[in-house]
């Protein structure tokens, strides 16, 4: 790929040493500076455009194609399969597990965001106060974010075991439970367990982003509110939250995007069970495509997920408009 650039670049060896205004010796002389720069810009973009087309555009388009095809294990080798109309989508609508997976995804996402925001914001506020050990605390709080997600899933499976799990042991030692709770195998509880694990996973992200937003609130504003006699709750609600609202919005959106994608955590923790009680769109789609080899049905469910995830993309683009607008002002 490096050779691509070399095409736009003049002879490398002597270029820097010549007269100030002259272009390097090997450079095409008729190309104006502006054209040369535009060509260089496009060449710099070539690998990225090629990658985005191959790794994002192609799979997304192909996924749409697949969802209208009658696939079978035998068709995998052929790239295309017979047209199936809306059969795969009709299957998804009629399949009880697909329907509950969609409902679970909504519940799981709403619960995760609520929990992550409340705890994350509380911790972010905590870290803005001065107390011993706050720097160390802040740097260690991101640990969950760095671990492989499948590892997190497996660890929580270990901690939430019925017998010999740390969580049940603590609850019984403290007296909150009289007998071990079946976190993972009780269909009514398992989704809660996955939810707890995901909240644990996402809190650091919320804390870090909200903390850095809180740092940017001008001291004068806080002092002025204090002078005006505003109590802590009033200061938070009427002064601080409005100022950091844009960051809160972005954080929620990113949290949403991360949560609808969750896969590894569930596979490690429950594998979608017991009796599909923790099946999300992602895990059920995996099951349809890679366990049953109904790629068409899996792709149809994928598209439901994709639409769900992309619903918020206009909002995301709107919130990121600062960074988009800056692009038009960039000087060459």
């Amino acid at each position: 790929m490096k050779r691509d650039y070399a095409g736009a670049a003049p002879g490398p060896a002597s270029a820097g040493s010549g007269a100030a205004v002259a272009l390097g010796p090997g450079s095409p002389p008729r190309l104006s500076l502006w054209r040369r720069q535009r060509l260089a810009g496009w060449l710099f973009l070539t690998p990225a455009i090629a990658y985005l087309l191959f790794a994002f555009a192609l799979p997304i388009v192909y996924n749409v194609m697949l969802s209208f095809e009658q696939t079978s294990p035998a068709t995998i080798a052929h790239f295309t399969a017979p047209f199936a109309g809306l059969a795969n989508y009709r299957f998804i609508l009629g399949d009880p597990t697909s329907r509950t997976a969609i409902i679970h995804t909504f519940e799981f996402t709403a619960g995760s965001l609520a929990g992550q925001f409340i705890i994350g914001f509380a911790l972010a506020l905590l870290f803005t106060l001065r107390f011993p050990g706050r720097t160390l605390g802040r740097s260690l709080i991101i640990v969950p974010w760095l671990l492989p997600l499948i590892v997190t899933g497996v660890i929580f499976k270990f901690l939430f075991q019925l017998e010999g799990g740390a969580v049940n042991q603590i609850l019984m030692d403290v007296g909150l439970a009289h007998q071990p709770i079946d976190w993972l195998d009780d269909p009514h509880l398992a989704l809660w367990t996955v939810l707890i694990a995901n909240i644990w996973l996402g809190v650091p992200f919320f804390t870090l982003l909200l903390y850095s937003a809180l740092q940017d609130v001008p001291v004068e504003v806080k002092e002025a509110a204090l002078m005006d006699g505003a109590g802590p709750w009033q200061r938070l609600r009427l002064v601080i939250v409005p100022i950091i609202l844009p960051v809160i919005e972005v954080t929620f959106l990113l949290g949403f995007v991360f949560t609808v994608k969750v896969f590894d955590l569930v596979i490690g923790l429950t594998g979608g069970g017991p009796a599909n009680a923790t099946q999300l769109i992602t895990t059920w789609s995996y099951n349809l495509s890679f366990q049953v080899f109904s790629f068409g049905e899996g792709a149809a469910l994928n598209n439901v997920l994709l639409v769900l995830a992309l619903i918020c993309s206009p909002l995301y683009l709107l919130l990121s408009r600062g960074s988009l607008r800056r692009s038009s002002g960039a000087a060459g």
């Binding site: 810009g41 994608k261 899996g298 992309l310």
Partner: peptide, 30 residues
């Protein structure tokens, strides 16, 4: 660089971050 594709590409990148991996994995496998 002042390029006409910039806004389109940056928007695409923001959208790419949203695409769930299972969607890509299913297609990429085939």
């Amino acid at each position: 660089y002042r390029l006409r594709v910039t806004v389109f590409l940056v928007s695409s990148l923001l959208v790419c971050q949203i695409v769930p991996s299972i969607v890509l994995a299913t297609s990429l496998f085939i």
